[in-house]
Design a binder for these strands. Structure first.
Lengths: 155, 155
DNA sequence: GGAGAAGTGGGGGGAAGTGGGTGAATCGAT
DNA sequence: ATCGATTCACCCACTTCCCCCCACTTCTCC
């Protein structure tokens, strides 16, 4: 399982292409075959999974979701509709569909913020991200969660 | 598990590079492969983990955090966003990202204070540190903690 | 006082990111 | 069915930044 971290900003070009930061690419397993899956994320951003990790996510969806439950069905549909498998070109770039760009507030000729979060990468519009981070500082967030879970002396 | 202690001041150069004090470097395990991970710490400073220790921290995050929980997600994101893996150059230096420098109140061509705290190293702006330590003396702090935890005759 | 290590400063090669162009394939229309 | 237009994928080229190596100074420990 890859472990993404760190952030990088890359520009979406006029053709809707954007380079996946080299730092993130180097985390891909060979099993991913330079292929990724893009899906809408929970907080108006795009989630990028390496193909091999996505397989596992998909297996989890099959297991946990019940298609006879209307709410589950709607959730599944709304995620999978926009799921987009993309293979990196020789420059390490992918194409982002218009639907996903709209969803995340991205557009051509604008920057995209890649954030590595363990087993997936989030793609944000920098504007949306500044709104998001304005809410709380890393320190505050950490202390809140630390109250719930004792991380021991490691962190 | 490494056991850092002591402090040292090193200068950040114009390129944002700073030497990890030799005293701290000598504590690294060979498994760290001269690689460290920098993350924002709970009090406006940078935390430095040797790569092998960070693996354990990360494993703890994976275990304790649930990405279906919005608050956990935000916390993970805000920490990992600025997480930066750096390999020491032949001079024992690392590069500090602008984001982390801002977070800790550091800047290029200014000194950075390295403080060894058992399994990680804290990197402070000397200015911030003097404010911090002006608040309470080691003796007061110790006595406060000793009220909570009996350290026995060891300390 | 000398030798070696530790910390600081600078420069060149290469990779990463960005932009553009051409050929093949798909779709639509006549 | 053929032709045309549009789109996509692959390839090539350029620029910038970063990483790695080399050189110097200072401090420390014999």
């Amino acid at each position: 399982m890859p472990r993404f971290k760190g952030q990088d900003e890359c520009k979406i070009d006029d053709k809707g292409r954007v380079a996946v930061p080299s730092k993130m690419r180097s985390v891909f397993n060979p099993e991913a075959h330079n292929t990724v899956v893009l899906v809408p994320g929970p907080d108006s951003h795009i989630r990028l999974y390496p193909a091999d990790t996505w397989e596992e996510v998909e297996a989890g969806l099959v297991e946990k979701m019940n298609t006879s439950n209307p709410k589950h069905r709607r959730t599944l549909r709304s995620i999978l509709r926009f799921a987009d498998e993309q293979t990196l070109d020789s420059q390490g770039r992918i194409r982002v569909s218009n639907d996903l760009m709209n969803y995340a507030g991205l557009s051509t000729s604008s920057p995209a913020l890649f954030i590595g979060v363990l087993n997936y990468v989030e793609i944000w519009s920098p504007d949306h991200m500044t709104e998001e981070e304005a809410i709380e500082s890393p320190a505050d967030l950490y202390n809140e969660v630390a109250a719930d879970f004792d991380m021991g002396s490691l962190f």
